[in-house]
Structures are given as structure tokens and as C-alpha cells.
């Protein structure tokens, strides 16, 4: 299966794999301490001891990238995971049951989709992550959980709409009509016939959604309400933005990693969708 992919897709799969490896095994790797101040500030690429250089505070950029991949990917995977699960269930319900359920769910999806996703997550995070006592900022764990919850809410309608469309198409296919006419129970039809056919399109869109979530996380950090203090790629950007004139490298390293990961996720999603299309055209 891997051999059939194009070169670009192979590279993308490898890149996503590498980032996952960083996220899981990050602190076990022989890297510098991400919170240690080194004496060289604003060192360039491939300088001795710092393969990607250092920023204006003297933080080692490679170590920060490796450790930052953990929160960036953690947020992306959990929010897309929960979002696909809930959005998928709601989408299948809307597409299979039709009628009033479909109308209500579609209007709800449209309501959430009509608010730009960055603004929706901004409002949600502002509500959930602000502690009532202004002197005591919300803890880091709570912030991450809140970001995951808000991004899940943003992802649900996107996945819901896609799943609904796919379910509508499969519900009207002959084998589902046949199963219905033979008296198969609805739950059984959904489990045996709808879900296996709808899942591939959910996977394809979920990879695209991972890209979206990584970007939104970066944007939130730039607006100042993301994960704090350089522990994710987005917050590395936010930290480097002020020192742009002195250490542009501190901005471009996380930007490159973020951009490449988004491109790779999109490519994997696209390759999955193409496989799906070819499978459907063979039918």
C-alpha cells in the first residue's frame, strides 16, 4: 500500500511519522534542555551544539521544536478525534434518519459554521479559560483541556456536514434498500453497511482537519490566548514575534515545521481521498 503512493505522499507520511515520534519520544532524545538559557543568542542554523540555532533568550530551538510538537499534536489529535467521533455520530444520525432530525442538525451545523472558526474558538476559550480571580491565571493543564474542548466544538460541524453527505449517498444505495426490505434493524444497517463505507471519507477529512487545528492553535497563540510560554509551536511563534529584527531564525524555524506538518497532513488526506475515489469508480 505504501509503495503505491507518489513520492510526495511518501515524504508526507514519513514527515508526519517523524513528528509523531518527536511528540511521543521527545524528552527521551539526546537534546538540549528546552528551558536552559545558552550563552549564544540568536545563533544561526547548524551552529555548533545547536543544530537549528537559538533564539534571543538563548533557548535551543531544536529542543523547543521537539518538545513543542507534543502539545501541538496532542491538541490536534484529541480535538480532531473527539470532533470526528461526535460529528460522525451526529452526521450519520442526520443523514440516515432524515426528516426533522436532519433539519434541526443541519441548521445547528450551519449556525456553528457561519461563525468564523477562529472567532468561535476565541470566544469559547475566553469563556472557559478565564478564572474568576484575575490575579490567579488559569493553570496550564486547564488551558490545554479548554483549547481541546473549544477546537472539538469547532471541528464537530465540519465533520458532521461531510458525514451527513456521505451517509445520504450510501443510504440510497441498493444494498441498504435491500437490507431494509429484508427487515434488518436500523442499528444493524448503520453498523454493518453505513459506518464501514462512511469511515474512509471521515479519515480523509480528519487529516485535513488536523492541519486546520494546528493552524488555529498557532493563530490563537499569536492572539495571546494559546498555550503559554513556548511549549507549543504556536507559542514559540508568539514568543519570537517580538524579536523578529534580531533573531528571525526563532520565527522561521517553528513556521517551517508548522507549515511542513500542515502540508504533509493535507497531502496524506488528499492521497486517502484519491484512493477512495478510485475505489468508488471501480464499483
Amino acid at each position: 500500500m505504501f509503495k503505491k503512493l507518489s513520492l510526495f505522499s511518501k515524504l508526507s507520511v514519513l514527515w508526519v511519522g517523524l513528528m509523531f515520534f518527536f511528540a511521543i519520544a521527545g524528552r527521551l532524545l539526546p537534546i538540549a534542555d528546552p528551558t536552559e538559557f545558552f550563552e549564544v543568542q540568536g545563533a544561526g542554523l547548524f551552529s555548533p551544539g545547536h543544530i537549528l540555532g537559538t533564539d534571543m533568550n538563548g533557548y535551543d530551538l531544536f529542543a523547543n521544536i521537539v518538545v513543542g510538537s507534543r502539545y501541538s499534536l496532542l491538541i490536534a489529535i484529541f480535538s480532531v478525534g473527539f470532533g470526528s467521533l461526535i460529528g460522525g455520530i451526529l452526521g450519520i444520525a442526520a443523514g440516515y434518519l432524515r426528516g426533522k432530525t436532519d433539519y434541526v442538525l443541519s441548521v445547528l451545523f450551519n449556525i456553528f459554521l457561519s461563525i468564523p472558526n477562529l472567532i468561535l474558538s476565541l470566544v469559547l476559550i475566553a469563556v472557559l479559560a478565564t478564572s474568576s480571580d484575575p490575579n490567579e491565571p488559569a493553570s496550564e493543564t486547564r488551558r490545554i483541556i479548554v483549547i481541546i474542548i473549544s477546537l472539538t466544538i469547532v471541528i464537530i460541524p465540519i465533520l458532521g456536514r461531510i458525514t451527513r453527505g456521505a451517509t445520504l449517498a450510501w443510504t440510497s444505495s441498493e444494498f441498504v434498500v435491500a437490507a431494509k426490505s429484508m427487515g434488518m434493524k436500523d442499528m444493524m444497517i448503520i453498523r454493518r453497511h453505513i459506518v464501514p463505507n462512511v469511515l474512509p471519507s471521515i479519515y480523509a477529512v480528519a487529516f485535513l482537519a488536523v492541519g486546520i487545528v494546528i493552524v488555529v492553535e498557532g493563530s490563537l497563540s499569536l492572539l495571546g490566548i494559546g498555550v503559554g510560554n513556548g511549549t507549543s509551536w504556536g507559542s514559540m511563534l508568539a514568543r519570537a514575534q517580538g524579536d523578529l529584527e534580531y533573531a528571525p531564525i526563532a520565527l522561521f524555524v517553528p513556521l517551517t515545521f508548522l507549515g511542513l506538518t500542515v502540508i504533509a497532513c493535507n497531502q496524506v488526506g488528499d492521497a486517502l481521498r484519491q484512493r477512495l475515489d478510485s475505489r468508488e469508480s471501480k464499483l
Binding site: 493552524v215 498557532g218 508548522l258 507549515g259 497531502q267
Partner: peptide
């Protein structure tokens, strides 16, 4: 190009 985030 389509995958590069606008803010990047």
C-alpha cells in the same frame, strides 16, 4: 501554497 497558513 494552499496548505501554507496565511499568518506564516
Amino acid at each position: 501554497g494552499s496548505a501554507i497558513p496565511g499568518f506564516a
